[in-house]
């Protein structure tokens, strides 16, 4: 009975409208940044004359578009992709644009999967789930709510289930990652970070060698990584431990960012932590931060509740 009441409550309100919008903006800027960084090498990565041997894109083939055609006209594809990102950034086209963006992103990944990492893999799933979410209540040209009760309840349910899907998938990633790690001798015996810090490809700083040779650092960092990955999927669901375990996760990913030169992956994982906090928690945190800034800098920044106007209610489609 309590479960049924809880499930019904998911239809009452979109509990993550703020962070869904924030993440939508982040996705757009992340994708644009990736294309900009790859700009000089787009021909190598996606062109027909690249030294990278092509693989079928699968999705476009299902739609009757051969892969070689896509590669020969990759500039048009990239242009369309950027246009869709901009539309998504402003919330134009809403769920349809989100779906198009997911399909383009999936196609781009298949056109060159060699440059992908776990962050890109997670991003793909988040974008798939966000097709069902109303992430347009903030930071979009036209936020709105359905007047039709069924559509409104469906929209709220879709949004809340989208976030639940993201958080569940995220916890599953940590769980299986920890499962695989524990199975490996170097993690079990507390020496894994010696290897991760020493591999040339991932040696991000001149201090890596020094740190890798320090037995205490290696042991602590190895077990810290394991403990975070093992306990995150459990402790993140409890209010008392959520913030602590999220902060530990941020520390872990920032460490990997600095010491292992893995950039996009870590930012995506850190940004995903925001989905574990509801709108009210974000509102309280932002209001606290804004009040502190107003007090220290003697500014008059509006607080979160004042800033956001009520969304327009429009007729259900």
């Amino acid at each position: 009975m309590a479960l049924f009441k809880y499930l019904l409550s998911l239809e009452e309100k979109n509990r993550y409208s703020f962070y869904l919008a924030v993440f939508r903006i982040f996705v757009c800027f992340h994708l644009i940044k990736t294309i900009l960084f790859q700009w000089a090498y787009l021909d190598i990565l996606y062109g027909a004359n690249s030294f990278v041997s092509p693989v079928p894109t699968f999705i476009t083939e299902l739609l009757g578009i051969p892969t070689h055609f896509l590669r020969e006209h990759y500039q048009w594809f990239i242009t369309a992709y950027l246009l869709i990102i901009v539309l998504y950034l402003f919330g134009i086209g809403k769920h349809f644009t989100a779906l198009l963006l997911f399909l383009c992103y999936e196609t781009l990944q298949r056109m060159c999967n060699l440059v992908l990492n776990g962050g890109d893999n997670l991003m793909k799933f988040i974008m798939l789930y966000m097709v069902f979410a109303d992430s347009y209540q903030y930071f979009s040209i036209k936020a709105g709510q359905f007047r039709n009760q069924t559509l409104r309840r469906l929209s709220n349910l879709g949004s809340n289930l989208c976030v639940r899907a993201i958080t569940l998938h995220f916890c599953m990633i940590y769980f299986w990652s920890a499962w695989h790690k524990i199975h490996a001798e170097v993690w079990f015996n507390g020496v894994a970070t010696y290897y991760t810090f020493s591999i040339g490809r991932f040696k991000g700083t001149p201090w890596n060698d020094f740190l890798a040779r320090n037995g205490v650092f290696v042991t602590i960092s190895t077990y810290f990584t394991l403990i975070v990955e093992v306990y995150f999927p459990v402790l993140v669901w409890f209010k008392k431990t959520r913030l602590v375990v999220v902060l530990c996760g941020i520390a872990l990913h920032l460490g990997i960012y600095v010491f292992m030169m893995i950039y996009g992956f870590e930012i995506i994982f850190i940004m995903t932590y925001g989905f574990f906090f509801k709108d009210e928690e974000w509102q309280a945190f932002l209001n606290k931060l804004i009040s502190r800034i107003n007090r220290k800098a003697k500014w008059k920044l509006p607080t979160f509740a004042e800033f956001h106007p009520e969304p327009q209610v429009y007729a259900g489609r």
Binding site: F125, M172, S177, H180, A184, Y195, T196
Partner: peptide, 19 residues
């Protein structure tokens, strides 16, 4: 996996060599 490829065994184990 063909439709929704995913693999989450990061650095498990980490490589013990440079290529």
């Amino acid at each position: 996996q063909q439709w929704l490829f995913q693999r989450w065994g990061f650095f498990a184990p980490p490589p013990n060599y440079d290529e």
